[in-house]
Structures are given as C-alpha cells and as structure tokens.
Amino acid sequence: MAEALLELEGLRVEFRGPRGISRVLDGVSLRVAAGERVAVVGETGCGKSLTVLAILGLLPQGARFRGRLRLLGREVPAAEWGRSKRPLPGVAMVFQQPMSSLNPVFTVGDQLRAVARTLPHLRALPAPRLRARLLEVLSAVQLADGDRILRSYPFQLSGGMRQRILIALALLKEPKLLIADEPGTALDVTLQAEILGLLDHLVRTQQLALLHITHNLGVARATTDRVYVMYAGSVVEEAAAEQLFSSPLHPYTAGLMRSVPRLDGSGFGEGIDGTLPSYLEVDLGCRFRQRCTFRDSRCEEKPELSSPSPERRVACHHWELVRAAAALEERV
C-alpha cells in the first residue's frame, strides 16, 4: 500500500443538546494514500459530512470530539483540527454550492486574488506573476479564456463554470488532498459527468489525492479506487470500489445497492425498512440491527471491523451469510 497521506483514527463526535448527549460519530477511521481516490458514501444523517468537517477544523460550536489525525505521517495536535477553524496545510475543500460559495459582488479575479493573499506561498508574489498563476489554475480546471473569466462576475458564468472556479480556488492552495463534498449534486447529469471527469483528470495530472463524499453509489463507483460506507455514525464497510460493488458484505451496503434503480431496467429492490436510529440512545449492539434481515442474538453485541480479506473490512457478524445470500440471488 502506498504511503498514507491522511489517517483518521477513532473519531468520535458528540453534541450536548436539550435531550441529552448525542454521539453522532462513533469511532470513524479512514485512510487516504497519496494519489488515491477515496469515497465516503452513506445516506442523509450518516455522519459523512461531519467527518469531513472535523478534518477541516469546521465542527460546529458545541461539538466535542476525540480521535487521532495524522497528515503526511505527522500527528496533528487536537488544537489544529476538529474545531480549530484553520485549514490543514495541504488539504483543500471543494464546496457543493456553486451559487452561494462565490460572492456575487466581486469579480472572479478579485476572489481568487483574495484567497491567494491568505496563502504563504502566493502572498509575496508580484502582481503579474500572481496573474500568471491564476490563469494557470483556470486552465487546469479546463476553463479557456481565463482573461475574460477573471474579469467576470459570478452571475455572468454558467453553473458548470462556477463549479470549476470553486475547484480552481481549491487548487490555489496547492493541496495534496482535495476533499469534495457531493460535487455535482446541485448539477445535472451531463454537467456532473464533466465535473467528475475533471476531478479525475486533476488527480492524475496534479498528483492529488481525492476524498469524495457522496450519497450516490454510481458516482462513487465511477470516480474512486476505494470506498468507505457509513451508517449511523460509523464505518460499516470498506473495500476497493470494484469489490464493493460486485459483492457487498454488509447488509446495509447490500440493501442500498438493491435500492438503486438500474439502467438495464432490471428493476430495483424493496428499499430498506425503518429509519436511522436515534443518536441519543446508548446502543451496545449493531446500529443496523433493527432494519436488518440477518439479525439474530449476536447482533446485540456491536460488531468490530473484521477483515475478510487483506484489503477489505466489514462491521457485521454475518458477512459470510450476506455474501452467500447474494451469490444465491445471482444464480436465481
């Protein structure tokens, strides 16, 4: 395995609220190697965005967190992530809302320059060289006619161009790791395909690693090497993309995949019964068991992540059964 760029270990996040303490992340660990494309998938409320916010130091007020973060082999002290409000060096974020993330009253050039002025490696650059650098990142995100774009206001640009500018903003920071939270969910499929293609291109040409947060399994499959599946504040499965989508081992992953309508018209399954459990309840068992068809008495005990094969991990007592059931279904 390649050198680890980012390693998150045992992240736990809690909120104290009117009804008590809710533990919304419980022992999330993930790892991104240099140049690797990793996806975190899960449905609304699973904690995938919160995980990213913790890495970026943007946890909301009142959140309590615990865990270890290593960046490029160096341990990051707790004061420098979680709620630090300061970005980690070498990590840049691409935000999801191309409309609201750009200020409508400044030109694109002004906004790029404002960001550049906060960056140590660009701060001292004389104006012409900074301009050259700005044109460079614009061309990196495949925006032709950079001069015109620098002079444009956001409303003069299309949604796709704005999304590209947000990526350019992230590239200015010369990151090793690009974090993208649902890029393209606000966009249409053709545009989404283009943006995902661009991210892929950047990973290859700029030696970037990509941590991709998405609820869309198809998007995760198309753009990543490895996938983490989250449910109710924990990672329930981790595998190489192709492995995960050809044979899911966690009942939740399997249920999700059955819920997705297929382009070949083969229909889709029944969905998953029930709803996400409350984060307020202290639960010693498997968080998925109330919705699980494989449930038995062993599920009253929380399953640890186990390794069915060297590159895979799954948090389920019954993963062998799940695999057998899937194989059976395949034959029928």
Binding site: T190, A193, E194, N216, L217, R221, A222, V260, R262
Partner: peptide, 28 residues
C-alpha cells in the same frame, strides 16, 4: 444519447448499455 452516457451506474452490465461515442459536452 448524451444523457444516457452521463448516468452513473453500479455494474459493468449497465455500463455496457451506455452509448460510448457521445461524451457529455457543454451546458444547457
């Protein structure tokens, strides 16, 4: 054809159904 080519899919079988020659270009 362009719309179909852009659909994210889960399996290689579905991938095979997508028209390959039309790449998504531009915006509406």
């Amino acid at each position: 054809q362009m719309l179909l080519a852009a659909v994210p899919t889960l399996t290689p079988d579905e991938e095979a159904l997508k028209p390959a020659k039309v790449q998504p270009v531009g915006e509406i």
